[in-house]
Simulated assay, not measured.
Amino acid sequence: METTGLDGDSEIVEITIIDLDENPLFETLIKPVSLIPEEAPPSTESQTKWLKMLQAHR
């Protein structure tokens, strides 16, 4: 699970379910309600592309 930060206003932006061998079984990105702060950089390349696309459509 990835979030926009660690405080009480943080939002979940990605959920991944993996098996015991760490193979992804399910992965989804979630559009946050608020803008993602600069100090919370995306952790994966696909998430970076997705978040840039979302922010461009605001």
Rank of each mutant, 00 (worst) to 15 (best):
E14Q: 15
E14M: 14
T16I: 11
T16S: 08
I18V: 15
D19T: 05
D19N: 13
L20Y: 11
D21V: 11
D21Q: 15
D21A: 14
D21S: 13
E22N: 15
E22W: 12
N23S: 11
N23H: 08
P24A: 05
P24S: 09
P24L: 01
L25Y: 01
F26N: 06
F26P: 10
E27M: 13
L29M: 13
I30S: 00
P32S: 07
P32D: 03
V33S: 10
V33A: 10
S34P: 02
S34G: 07
S34V: 06
L35T: 12
L35G: 12
L35V: 10
I36A: 00
I36G: 05
P37W: 00
P37K: 05
P37L: 05
P37F: 03
P37Y: 02
E38N: 06
E38P: 00
E38I: 04
E38Y: 04
E39R: 01
E39M: 05
A40Y: 01
A40E: 01
P42S: 02
S43M: 08
S46Y: 07
T48L: 07
K49C: 08
K49Q: 10
K49P: 04
L51P: 03
L51R: 06
M53Y: 05
M53K: 13
L54A: 08
L54R: 05
Q55I: 09
Q55D: 08
A56V: 08
A56K: 13
H57I: 13
